[in-house]
Amino acid sequence: MKLQSTPPIPASDRQSPPAVLTLGPASCDAAILAQLLPVAERFRLNSAHLDPGGLVGWLDRLEALFEAEGRSVPVVVDLQGAKMRIGRFPSIPRLPGRVELVPGDRSERADTIPVPHPGLFRHAAPGDRLFLNDARVELEIERVGDERIGARTVRNGPLEASKGINRAPHPLPFEALSDRDASMIDASIGRPFVEYALSFVRSAQDAGLLRPRLGGHRLIAKLERTEAIAHVREIDAAFDESWLCRGDLGAQAGVGELGPIQRRIATLIPSLRNPCYLAGQVLEHMTHFPEPTRSEVVHLYEVARSGFAGVVLSDETAIGRHVAEVAGFLARAAPEE
């Protein structure tokens, strides 16, 4: 029997979804930025790891890059919103069996975690679960006192400064724009290429707390809490775009629920007015290794064909060891012109 040759895969079927690339210490070099620019639909800056001066420095650097390369892309400034992060804290591989959480910005002790969010100390109760570092660490609150929370370590893992912390099953509400987020907006609002993303969106009403400050700049809703999943259509109508962010959402809903949630969002996409992107360990293997796994490559293909408008890379390009290889992979995965 004569074997038939396999026809070439059409360029449209080789296409990977557009990528939003997060910038950080691993991608601050001018040569690396020049490699990322051709494969980036947009860049992202996580304001949680910057002060206003640092944000201005990044925007100046990118503006110079755009001028030198003759091409510009939007830059998404990611605001914390209701998302909490711990303060300055030693980098440790594991926590003690019991820890205390205290208000403040800094701690030098491994058993004392600083949390600069007064709302946590108002709302926390014994029995609540706290997830840190994308659920790599889980704490159970045992006691709540005056400006001090005692907790037992249920799931142990690494922790370092500025990692996320949230309460399950109900994160704190977004009640007002924080001084920190306001300072980030003030530092960037004058750049016409800037867009904004809001973390831990709960409902369409959250957009109303930001719109008056943004002067027409685009606003993106990050879907990271279970309450938001029940109101996707309303959030879509109030924001300009949405991102399904599987890191914190996995901590809130449970990792086992991510598949059904992603499928549910994919079925809603045709009825949404605005684009929806997928975030969270999209090419996680490339944070540590120069090639993606076969599973990641197949997943990327399926994401593009399930209706998502694109993907958001985080650690892969912000702190990864192989940022140039990520750029090379995205370039190879792009359609031929």
Rank of each mutant, 00 (worst) to 15 (best):
A68M: 07
L101T: 09
Q205M: 04
A11W: 05
P25H: 03
N274G: 07
S306G: 14
L101Y: 11
K83E: 09
E69R: 15
D60L: 13
R233A: 15
A168W: 06
M1E: 13
N133K: 13
A333W: 02
N156D: 14
G320A: 01
R191M: 01
L21V: 00
E325C: 01
P103Y: 13
R143M: 11
G307D: 03
Q4M: 13
V77Q: 03
L65E: 05
D315A: 15
G104E: 07
E138M: 14
L37E: 02
I265P: 05
P169D: 04
A124F: 11
G97T: 04
A279C: 05
P38G: 12
F289N: 12
G328K: 00
A110I: 05
I265F: 02
I9C: 14
V76D: 06
I220C: 12
P93V: 07
L3E: 13
R44F: 12
A333V: 01
N274A: 08
I189L: 14
R321A: 10
V201Q: 06
L268M: 13
E147Y: 14
G320S: 01
A110M: 06
R94P: 07
V232R: 09
G54D: 06
H231R: 15
V154P: 06
A228D: 10
A187P: 01
E140H: 15
F193Q: 09
S183R: 02
P118N: 11
I265H: 05
F174M: 13
H299C: 09
L223Q: 03
V298Q: 10
D111A: 12
Q15S: 13
G307W: 05
G53Y: 12
K163F: 01
D240V: 09
A221G: 04
L219I: 02
R42K: 15
R109P: 03
R155G: 10
S199R: 04
A230D: 14
L3P: 08
S107P: 05
E63V: 07
A327F: 00
G104F: 11
A151Y: 03
R218M: 04
W58G: 13
I235K: 12
R85L: 07
S162L: 08
V75S: 04
F200Y: 11
G97C: 02
D315Y: 09
A30T: 04
V99K: 11
G247A: 11
D248H: 10
L36M: 03
P292I: 00
R225M: 08
P116F: 11
K222V: 01
R88F: 10
A238D: 05
C276W: 07
R88V: 10
R263V: 02
V255D: 11
R71M: 09
V76N: 07
E302H: 14
V232G: 09
A161R: 03
L159I: 00
P25Q: 04
G53V: 10
F329L: 06
A176W: 06
